[in-house]
Amino acid sequence: MQPDAALQLATRQINRVREEIGKIIVGQKEVVDGVLICLLAGGHVLLEGVPGLGKTTLLRTLARVLHLKYSRIQFTPDLMPGDIVGSMIIDTETGTKALRFQPGPIFAHLVLADEINRATPKTQSALLEAMQEHTVTSGTTTHELEAPFLVMATQNPIEMEGTYPLPEAQLDRFLMKILVKYPSREDLSTIVTRTIQKEETQIENILTREEILELRRISRDVLVAPHVQSYAIDLVMATQPETEQAHELTKKYIRYGSSPRGAQALVECGQVYALMHGRLHLAIEDVQMMAAAVLRHRIILNFDAHSDGQNPETILSKIIPSVGSRTGARV
């Protein structure tokens, strides 16, 4: 297939998925696009918001549209690592009483880790290790997790009671962190109207597993020009207080800046975003659009930031638009 034809087909397929999800999910365009971007970029996504905003419904709908295996793990303080990855059990069916591995709910294409910050750090680590390696080890045997593999973790705001905040090093393993906001009055009216309707909305299966993997391959072929790559690097270095490129707000409010994973994520997410919008080349605007979701969980603020009422959103909103003008990048 010619590159232009492959591009048009890929863009059309992604848009059809978005439209089909829209039959169930009202509004939340940024959230839907973010989850799709993480799926096609091969990463994982962390959603933060209060309960009841449709996070669970989104992933369940995505699984139906893409015809992928879906599982949900409700994180609680008494959840154990074996409840996630699986455990060895005695097989009594064969009559030999031999040990065999019973896969846990992590063995799915789309895994919802609901309220991940309600589980203990030990249990959180079991999930995050599987996310990083795409494998699960039981005893001396390693079990592969089938691609595509996406973990969508949901997190209650830290100020809510009964939560265990994720360590910063583990947060870095999420490709994006998306803030789920309350719906507008218009969207809320649509939600209530759909609730009282008697007929259930029917959605179609749009893509197969093989087509999703092909979309991943095409997104990786999106061209990244040297000046765009330099912009992504400069943007990450602007969040690091020890570097010469550090923004003035970085030096004042940020204790630790983004790791190199941030630069990788900016490019990977930007490539998928460009593909979604019908382009086979990455633009600086694509990187800028991805920057907040990619970097907000990768910067650690100092005491002065908290005392002055600053947060990652307010700081990044100043850093992101300033990088192009300071480095001379074409925006």
Rank of each mutant, 00 (worst) to 15 (best):
M1E: 14
Q2G: 14
P3H: 03
P3T: 03
A6Y: 00
L7I: 02
Q8G: 13
L9A: 14
R12L: 04
Q13E: 12
R16H: 08
E19I: 02
G22T: 02
K23A: 01
I24D: 11
I24L: 11
I24H: 06
I25W: 00
V31D: 07
V32W: 06
L36Q: 07
L40G: 07
G43L: 04
H44I: 06
L46N: 11
L46M: 12
L46T: 03
P51V: 09
T56D: 12
T56C: 09
T57Q: 14
T57P: 06
L58N: 10
L59K: 00
R64N: 15
L66H: 05
L66G: 02
L66Q: 07
K69T: 12
Q74L: 08
T76R: 05
P77E: 06
P77Q: 08
L79E: 13
L79C: 11
L79Y: 12
M80D: 08
G86C: 01
D91H: 08
P103Y: 01
G104M: 07
G104C: 01
P105I: 06
I106F: 02
A108S: 12
A113E: 04
A113Q: 03
A113S: 10
E115Q: 07
E115D: 13
I116A: 02
A119M: 11
T120F: 02
K122R: 14
K122P: 10
E133T: 11
E133M: 07
H134D: 05
V136S: 01
V136P: 04
G139H: 04
H143Q: 05
H143A: 00
E144K: 14
A147D: 13
M152Y: 00
Q155L: 02
N156M: 01
E159C: 03
M160T: 12
E161L: 01
E161H: 09
E161T: 04
T163F: 08
L166Q: 07
L175E: 13
L175V: 04
L175K: 04
L175F: 10
K177G: 08
I178V: 15
L179M: 13
K181Q: 15
Y182Q: 14
P183L: 03
L188F: 10
T190D: 12
T190E: 05
V192Y: 11
T195R: 08
I196Y: 10
E200M: 04
I203T: 15
N205E: 15
N205G: 15
E210I: 00
L213W: 07
R217S: 14
I218Q: 09
R220L: 12
D221R: 14
V222P: 09
V222E: 13
V224Q: 09
H227C: 05
V228P: 10
Q229E: 15
V236I: 11
A238N: 09
E242F: 06
T243K: 08
T250V: 09
K252Y: 02
A263K: 07
A265K: 03
L266H: 10
L266Y: 05
G270W: 02
G270Q: 07
H277A: 06
L280N: 12
I284T: 13
I284L: 14
E285K: 14
M289A: 15
V294L: 04
L295H: 03
L301N: 11
N302W: 08
F303Y: 14
F303P: 05
H306V: 11
H306F: 11
G309L: 03
G309Q: 11
N311H: 09
P312N: 04
K318W: 03
K318H: 14
I319Q: 09
P321R: 01
S322H: 10
G324Y: 02
S325I: 13
T327N: 14
G328L: 10
A329G: 09
R330D: 14
R330P: 01
V331D: 08
